[in-house]
């Protein structure tokens, strides 16, 4: 599973981004998205588009943790959301690996082909045909199933821990509201939370 975590201000300004991979079941904690490295904008597009859903859920649902709220099927990207009472949104994009085997997705950066808009690969997140079958195959293992209750719970824990640290970070008198969070401490804590729960 690969993760892209982002915090957006109430006006959709990104405050914090981090990409990481799972550390569970032998994962090395490195993100391997289905799009090539040159197409990291895909994560942002998907996250951004899920704000439609977040905004709706925000008003229909009183909870802070909104669970899995959106899916981008072409790349099997799942979005979970967490809202702080002040309106910041925590969005976690998670994407199961291409194939069930941990090494089968080493080509994550191979499809890029360097420059070009999105390189030579499909903009829609790698090969379509491969996407769905892999999603189906990996759905059998709980750890890789983004919509299972176990995953929901793990993400909830992750969000709660990040939130705790987020509160501390914004309490820093030197942090100005709406500014990008550049705290290395916060980053390391998010990483730690990711390692712990995801």
């Amino acid at each position: 599973m690969s993760y892209y975590f982002t915090i957006l201000s109430p006006t959709d300004v990104p405050l914090f981004n981090i990409a990481f991979g799972t550390s569970k079941s032998g994962g090395d904690g490195i993100a391997r998205f289905r799009f090539p490295d040159t197409a990291q904008y895909m994560n942002q597009f998907i996250i951004h588009s899920s704000l439609d859903m977040v905004e709706e859920a925000q008003w229909m649902n009183g909870n802070m943790y909104l669970k899995h709220i959106d899916t981008y099927p072409p790349a099997s990207a799942y979005i979970s959301a967490f809202l702080t009472p002040s309106g910041a949104r925590f969005l976690l994009l998670h994407q199961p690996p291409h194939a069930a085997g941990p090494n089968a997705n080493a080509g994550g950066s191979g499809g890029g082909g360097g420059g070009g808009i999105g390189g030579g690969s499909s903009i829609l997140g790698g090969s379509f045909a491969a996407g769905s079958s892999a999603a189906r195959a990996s759905a059998s293992s709980i750890a890789a199933n983004p919509t299972s209750p176990q995953t929901e719970e793990a993400v909830r824990q992750f969000m709660a821990e990040v939130y705790e640290n987020y509160v501390k970070t914004v309490m820093n008198p030197f942090y100005r509201q709406g500014m990008e969070i550049r705290s290395a401490v916060f980053r390391s804590r998010v990483t730690a939370a990711g390692r712990k729960w995801l």
């Binding site: 597009f45 808009i117 999105g118």
Partner: peptide
């Protein structure tokens, strides 16, 4: 403008 830099670049 998009607030997300990589989107904007793309």
């Amino acid at each position: 403008a998009f607030s997300m830099p990589e989107m904007q670049t793309f």
